[in-house]
Every structure is written in C-alpha cells, then in structure tokens.
C-alpha cells in the first residue's frame, strides 16, 4: 500500500457530552481526491477541520505527511503550512487587497521577498482566472470571485493537501460553476483534495473515492463509480435518493 499522506486512526471526538466523531479510520494517498458527503450534523466538517487542527480530537491519531497532530504547536503551524483550506464563508481578509490576501502568509511564514511573493500570487490568481482583480478589495467582489481568491490564497502556500469545507454552499447558483471549474482544474493538476460538498456532479467528475458520513461515523466508503451505482448501506441509499 502506498504510504498515505493522511492517516486517521480510531479517532473519537466529543463536544462536551456529545460525541461528534465515532471511531473514524481513513487513509488518504497522495494525489487522491476524496469527497465527503452526508446530512448536516454528521460530523463531516468537524472531521476535515481536525486534519489541520482547527478542531482537536480527544482519542486516536491523525498523522499528516508524517507529522502526528498533538499539542505541540510548532508542529501544528508546520502542518498548517502544508494543508490549505477553503471555507464556506470565504473568510478573505477585508482590510487587505486580493493580492495582499494571497501574499500575506508567504511573506510572513515562508519569509519570501515581496517581489517573489507577488509573482507567486499573480500566478495562482491567473490559475483561478481572477488576476485582473488583484488590486481590488474583497468587499468589491462577488461571492464566486471571493471564493476563487480564497482558493488562490490557500494555494500560495504551495500546500500538499487542500481541504474544502462546503465551498459552494454559500454561493448564488450562477456562481457555483466558476468555483467548481477552478476546483476541477486544481484536481487535474494532481493536488490531493478532500472536499466536503453536496455537489454530486463534481464528485462524479473528479473524485476517486466518496465517503458518506452520518451521525459521526463513516457509513460507507467506496470508489466513486461503485458508490453511485451500488450503494450498499440503506442510509446511503436514502441520502442519495434525496439529493440526486
């Protein structure tokens, strides 16, 4: 088995009394694209947020690119530099221009000179087809444009893994396509991606594996074709019938 870039072993997590992740086991290989779907409250967002330690797991191990996630903060920052994340609410920094949003981390974390950072940022902004907006501010852009910038910002750290937490859920329908196109483009270039989404069309086109979660557990995990053609679990079947 090729060495997995993300190893999640027997992970359990509680919010107080409520158990939100139950015995999660998951291996992700390099260049793999995984789509996580499920009803709301199933723990899918919590799961991927544990991968870059925006949430902390109480039991089990999470190993990202050979580094185990624990209380050691130096480790956490190193890992976060290698794991990019795109949020449902974009979360661009409103007081900085698009270009500055993208160059902030390269300059301050990787200690890149400004010119180099600017070039890198412009390249990434071109990839998502928004380089002409580089000097504008987030408040001046539409939702779809902002999310594409968020993708570019995450890519500027040249991460090995990209996490997407329902990236299109907050967008108007006509802007979903432009963001999905950017994500498809990224997938084609070989990025390791874990995407939490309801966009099953995207899953069918890009994903290697699809995971269905419900009530904190991984209910079904299968290769994409198999998942949609032959869902094994009743709950999976119910879910698919509701959204397809």
């Amino acid at each position: 088995m090729p060495d997995s870039i993300i190893k999640i072993q027997n992970v359990n997590k509680w919010f107080g009394d409520f158990q939100v992740l139950k015995d999660i086991n998951l291996n992700v290989n390099q260049k793999q694209k995984i789509v996580v779907c499920g009803p709301s409250g199933s723990g899918k967002s919590t799961l991927i947020r544990c991968i870059n330690r925006l949430e902390e797991h109480q039991e089990g191990n999470i190993i990202v690119d050979g580094n185990e996630l624990n209380e050691d903060t130096k480790n956490i920052e190193k890992i976060r530099a290698e794991v990019g994340m795109v949020f449902q609410q974009f979360n661009l920094f409103p007081h900085l221009s698009i270009l500055d949003n993208c160059t902030l981390a390269p300059i301050w974390v990787k200690k890149m000179p400004k010119k180099e950072a600017d070039e890198l940022a412009m390249k990434q902004l071109e990839q998502v087809q928004i380089s002409d907006q580089a000097l504008k501010f987030p408040g001046q852009l539409s939702g779809g444009q902002q999310q594409r910038c968020a993708i570019a910002r995450a890519l500027c750290m040249q991460p090995k893994i990209m996490l997407f937490d329902e990236p299109t859920s907050a967008l108007d329908p006509e802007m979903i396509k432009e963001v999905l196109d950017a994500m498809v483009n990224l997938a084609k270039q070989g990025m390791t991606m874990i995407v939490v989404t309801h966009e099953m069309g995207f899953a069918k086109e890009v994903a290697d594996e699809v995971i269905f979660m419900d009530e904190g557990m991984i209910v079904e995990q299968a290769k994409t074709k198999e998942f949609f053609a032959n869902p094994k679990n009743d709950r999976t079947k119910l879910f698919l019938s509701q959204i397809l």
């Binding site: 870059n52 920052e77 976060r80 794991v83 994340m85 609410q89 979360n91 902030l104 750290m157």
Partner: peptide
C-alpha cells in the same frame, strides 16, 4: 472565520 482562515494558512 477570520481567526480560522488566518490560522489555516500557517500564521
């Protein structure tokens, strides 16, 4: 979200 986004890029 601002805290999280800033943390997620490694700051």
């Amino acid at each position: 979200g601002q805290h999280e986004a800033a943390a997620s890029i490694g700051l």
